[in-house]
Computed example of a mutant assay.
Amino acid sequence: MPTPDSFRTVRVPDATIHDPRRRRAILIAVCIALMAVIASVSGLNVAQPQVAVALGASQSTVLWMINVYTLTLAALLLPLGALGDRVGRKPILLVGLAMFGVASAAAGLATSSGMMIAARLLAGVGAAMIMPVTLAVITSTFPDEERSKAIGVWTGVAAGGGILGMYLSAVLVDWANWRWLFLLPVLLVAAATGLALRAVPNSREQSRHRFDLVGSLTSVIAVVALIYVLHEGPIHGWTAPVTLVSLLVGVAAGIGFVAWELRRAAPLLDVRLFRDRRLASGSLVLLALFGVQAGIFVVLFPYFQAVLGWSGLRAPPSRSCRWQR
């Protein structure tokens, strides 16, 4: 049986920053990096018709261009976040920013659907390195009395980044070309990298336990398989062999992940926390909210633009209820 001491990690060195100006620079750096990641989640939704025509892609292929980014981000968020805690948060952040910037530039220059999907997948890997590290940098560098304020700013950027990305993308689609959508994340990455190099200190957690490789693999398999079912089920059929096999693999991997994490002294994700009804119910509400929102965005944007002939800037859902008379 694991003891309370077995869950402890040793932080080396103490990375708390006491200079207010440097803390502001750190907060700006991680928030810019986070904004680049979040803005890329919703940005491509606005340009679905233009991308389909330019690359000769079917609707299913365009959906993969959109969803492979969020799929990769979701699947790798836990393991890459844990890896950053172990090997050093600043190196992981910088590598993630470089990978994300290169992938975004490649997506903007894509000449085929395959190139676009590969670039978006690579961007998802970079985003999975950036997003958890930005929060970990805040928790490790800000003193207790300032940490909650900084996390509040981080949360606000996470909430507003998607809206900002959606509207800026709509402006670029209307006034320039869909390829310019990927200029925004490249610029944000350049700014975040410059600030991170100067202001963000390196910090890491020294654990007494090995990296949770089994938990990482089972979590990735579960996420990929279950999202594949939701993505391809309507195309192949909900009772098709590939759909049922993917569902079985996803459920089995999910159960295996939970069972393994319950046995680990230092789990990748402490699933015991979800025994708290407030945390569990809040997580389910957020899952339903963002799941429905993402589905609406994918359907409404091409309908407003391709069927009703609306511009990209007029199509975002905040104005979509203003039907033409």
Rank of each mutant, 00 (worst) to 15 (best):
W180G: 10
A240D: 02
V68S: 08
L187K: 10
L279Y: 02
L80K: 01
L213R: 14
A103M: 03
A158P: 12
P234K: 00
P79E: 06
V95M: 11
E146A: 08
G256M: 01
I28Q: 07
G156Q: 03
A196C: 14
G215K: 02
V271S: 00
V37N: 07
A128C: 01
S148A: 14
Q50L: 14
S311F: 12
I255P: 05
I221M: 09
K90C: 02
F7D: 11
F290D: 01
V186F: 09
S320D: 08
T134E: 01
L286H: 11
L164W: 11
A136Y: 02
L121H: 11
L109C: 10
A128N: 02
I28V: 15
Q59C: 12
Q206I: 15
L55C: 11
A98W: 05
A176F: 15
W310S: 12
I38L: 07
V87R: 12
N177A: 14
F274N: 04
R198Y: 13
T9I: 14
T218G: 07
I117G: 05
R208L: 14
V41S: 10
F274L: 08
G215I: 02
M166G: 15
F257V: 00
H231P: 10
V46H: 00
T134M: 00
A265N: 10
V157P: 06
L284V: 10
W310V: 13
L188E: 09
T70K: 08
Y303E: 09
D144G: 13
P49E: 05
R275I: 09
F274M: 01
A150T: 04
A110F: 05
A222K: 07
L289G: 05
A57D: 09
A136F: 06
T3F: 08
L135N: 03
A159L: 12
R263D: 04
L230K: 07
G194T: 03
P185T: 09
A33H: 06
I66V: 11
G126M: 04
A315Q: 06
V125Y: 08
V298G: 08
A47K: 03
R23S: 10
V271I: 03
S219W: 00
V87K: 08
A266T: 15
G124F: 00
G81K: 06
N177C: 13
S148R: 14
V10I: 09
M166I: 15
A57I: 12
Q59G: 15
L83C: 07
M115A: 14
A75N: 06
A54M: 09
V12E: 11
S169R: 12
W323Q: 13
L284G: 08
I296A: 04
S203L: 03
A47Y: 04
T243D: 00
A15V: 10
F7P: 11
L279S: 02
